[in-house]
Design a binder for these strands. Structure first.
Length: 519
RNA sequence: GAAGGCGUAGCUCAGUCGGUAGAGCAACGGACUUUUAAUCCGUAGGUCCUGGGUUCAAGUCCCAGCGCCUUCACCA
């Protein structure tokens, strides 16, 4: 498990076999291996019954299971598309090949040529005529039946998790397909993908604590971005009318089942639109992604039960825990104030009643802006009821410093959040394009928020861009990791990220563990 | 950042009241030409997370530290 160079007894045993392979004049780390079939494709070509000799095929993969049974060996290998059994008979192979086989272990990568057949028990099998070692593995695989279970081990050595635990690779590959789908939907609507700076002099566009870094040559402090918003709006000023970025943002906050310090955000901006245009866009992006997942699931099922067409009732329904989520659009649009009235039992403008509700949930309200109190009461009382998908629309203006006020009612901002299963999945608004109001909102610090966490940070480059003139526009943000969680029935964000952040393992404790004195 | 739980062989896990460190799988040697967690015989494998303490004796009790998990706080 450790990165130590001292081989353990398992590695030593494998090194001995590696040397045995070298003694045969064979490269234990292999060479280019052309024209092999994906295992799933080889399985499709297999004959239907035992006794029929099928196609000659070439496949490659990692050895996963190997009950060693004398002069007739059955080995199971796996590639990205599936698993297949190999049968190796001493009588059919040269002495050199049999020696090579005796030097193989679980975890080695091999390629084989042979004919597809079924065994007496009906299992699809390649009857090996020639075996090629492509990589000798020096690591001991986990227990064959229970697999690796220790969460820390799986996260620190994700490659082991990917190889030996079923469904892990599939889920993460499905993430890639979902991201493809999001890009395709946006492209089909003429949105242009761009890349804006990750290193910011001012980390703006959201309320979050940033990561600090430093540029040596310029000798200036820099921050990793916490949002994509401000640069993308400047591009809209510059004439990129439909623009999006799908990229990593970084927030220096706590870590839990739904938060990783770096996560993937989609932000899309549409000139001449508003928050209602963004609701339509959100429905399109997400329902297309749901269709992608349904298609992938149908294909996986079709592979197992041979070309049965997927049952299609026209609904976009995906499993979630014991139940399901129905993503079939259109999704309901509920006013923030109405939901507040419904679940809290008072009007958001009734300050006394809101304070009472806040106090009963242990929420601080003295010297806090009334809209911030409303927002915290909403989160405490309403969010868990929003199983959704549901658009919550028209937020209290003071908690939306980058949002245009509602025409005729400046108490509210033209903002929506999309909730699914109590999780905030998307956040969007009609963008504020009045530079003087924007500057004023930046100057008016939000009550109760320390400066570093405030959304109201003055970005002069952004204000001067707004002075050039940004057309009216809608803007949308979707947390891609959470979208993937909801679409793949996954409860923790670390299972939709290949390498979630962990505290580094301490190497070489050098004696005095906790006894280290401080200066 | 706070509270609770966990940490024993490569892996999955037992370990009673404080009294010689255990099993299965994997590994190594042997038998075996249709296995499906193959089977059978044999061998080897331990910093019980780390460091202190109590005790005749600590995997077990106490203190401190490290890591992970869960819940909470911050946040999306």
């Amino acid at each position: 498990m450790s990165a130590s160079s001292a081989p353990d007894r398992f590695e030593t045993a494998r090194l001995e076999k590696l040397n045995k392979i070298v003694d045969l004049g064979v490269d234990p780390y292999g060479q280019r291996f052309d024209d092999h079939l994906p295992i799933a494709e080889a399985r499709r070509r297999a004959p239907g019954e035992p006794g029929i000799i099928g196609d000659e095929v070439r496949v490659a993969g990692r050895i996963l299971r190997w009950p060693k049974t004398g002069k007739l060996q059955f080995v199971h290998i796996q590639d990205a598309t599936g698993r297949i059994q190999l049968m190796m008979s001493k009588a059919d192979l040269s002495d050199e090949q049999w020696t090579l086989i005796s030097a193989l272990d679980l975890g080695d990568v091999v390629g084989v040529d042979g004919k597809l057949r079924r065994t007496n028990t009906g299992e699809i099998t390649v009857f090996v005529e020639r075996l090629t070692i492509l990589c000798k593995s020096l690591a001991q695989p986990p227990e064959k039946f229970h697999g690796a279970k220790d969460i820390e081990l799986l996260l620190r050595h994700r490659e082991v998790d990917l190889i030996y635990n079923e469904g892990v690779l599939e889920r993460l590959l499905l993430r890639s397909r979902i991201v493809d789908s999001v890009r395709q939907t946006l492209r089909s609507k003429a949105f242009v993908e761009v890349e804006t700076p990750v290193l910011h002099a001012i980390a703006g566009g959201a309320a979050a604590r940033p990561f600090h870094t430093h540029h040596n040559a310029l000798d200036i402090p820099l921050f990793l971005r916490i949002a994509l918003e401000l640069h993308l709006k400047r591009l809209m000023v510059g004439g990129v009318e439909r623009v999006y970025e799908l990229g990593r943002v970084f927030r220096n906050e706590g870590i839990d089942a739904t938060h990783n310090p770096e996560f993937t955000m989609l932000e899309a901006y549409q000139a001449y639109g508003n928050y209602e245009s963004m609701m339509d866009l959100t429905e399109a992006v997400i329902s297309d992604a749901v269709r992608t997942v349904l298609t992938a699931r149908a294909m996986a099922a079709g592979d197992a039960v041979a070309d049965a067409p997927p049952a299609d009732d026209g609904r976009l329904t995906l499993p979630w825990g014991e139940g399901t989520i129905d993503f079939t659009p259109p999704w309901p649009r509920r006013k923030y104030a109405d939901l507040f009235q419904e679940h809290v039992g008072c009007d958001i403008s009734d300050a006394a009643a809101v304070q009472t509700a806040a106090a009963s949930h242990g929420i601080e309200w003295a010297n806090v802006h009334p809209d911030v109190v409303v927002s915290e009461v909403f989160e405490a009382c309403c969010e868990q009821h929003l199983t959704g998908p549901v658009f919550v629309i028209d937020y209290p203006a003071a908690i939306c410093p980058l949002t245009k006020r509602k025409t005729g009612d400046p108490r509210f901002a033209e903002r929506f959040e999309l909730y699914v299963e109590g999780m905030e999945l998307a956040n969007a608004y009609t963008e504020l394009n009045d530079p003087r109001l924007q500057e004023e909102l930046f100057r008016t610090q939000l009550a109760g928020l320390p400066d570093e966490e405030s959304m109201a940070k003055m970005d002069h480059d952004f204000i001067s861009a707004l002075k050039v003139g940004m057309p009216p526009a809608g803007g949308l943000g979707i947390g891609i990791d959470r979208l993937v969680m909801l679409l793949t029935n996954t409860r923790t964000i670390r299972d939709v990220i290949f390498f979630p952040l962990l505290r580094p393992e301490r190497v070489a404790p050098r004696g005095g563990g906790g006894a280290a004195e401080s200066p």
